[in-house]
Design a protein around this nucleic acid. Sequence first.
DNA 1: ATGGCTTGAGTGTCAAGA
Length: 254
Amino acid sequence: MKLATWNVNSLKVRLPQVLDWLAANSPDALCLQETKTTDEGFPFAELAAAGYRAEHNGQKTYNGVAIVWRGELADVVRDIPGLADDQKRVIAGTLGDTRVISAYVPNGQEVGSGKYAYKLEWLAALAGWLRAELARWPRLALLGDFNIAPEDRDVHDPEAWRGKILCSTAERAAFDALLGLGLADAFRLFEQPDKSYSWWDYRELAFRRNRGLRIDHVLLSAALVPDCRACHIDKTPRRLERPSDHAPVVVELR
DNA sequence: ATGGCTTGAGTGTCAAGA
């Protein structure tokens, strides 16, 4: 089984690239973030023509997450149960016996800001909900844009980013708390190239200079880890014209 | 140098992203 996650930064703009990527990579499920559209604007028909079904949790202009899959998806949940939040950042479903969650963690804007407090509260709520999800579905994959670079090696210039948004101690502690639930960072299960990132700023030729951050992740429950054969970041779409600023992250499971 | 791009909104220019 192949699972992937991709923050597309507007599905309207990126749909041709998503369709091409699905055709080229043939994942069983693709988790999307930042669709930036309502359910009415979601391209269900175009995806169906490509052999994929979809569940979307969207809103106008901002946020929006989806799972695009082949086969059957059951027990779909939108949003974090019990969290008062009008931002559409979570959708989950079960593919076979594997729970698949597409998440778009808040950016946080600046350490100490209101958005930063919201990010940390949101991550705490996510962890609380995941504990229950893991109890129900031992085989669980949490995929998405976490907006956290877990370690200095995930940052092109760790000194410049020290303590800054996406890299602060509290954000990294929140990421570690997710690992503490029994989840593993699939990317780090394998030897990886140095300076591997999943996001590059649009400005200042950041991609060409590989000035990026690894903030998109796939976390696997302990039951899935032995089945994980590979995890990689696919930089191919980042090289296209009008790319998303994020690259897809792909895992292959037995 | 707090900029630089890109998107959605909507037609002038701002909010938000990371």
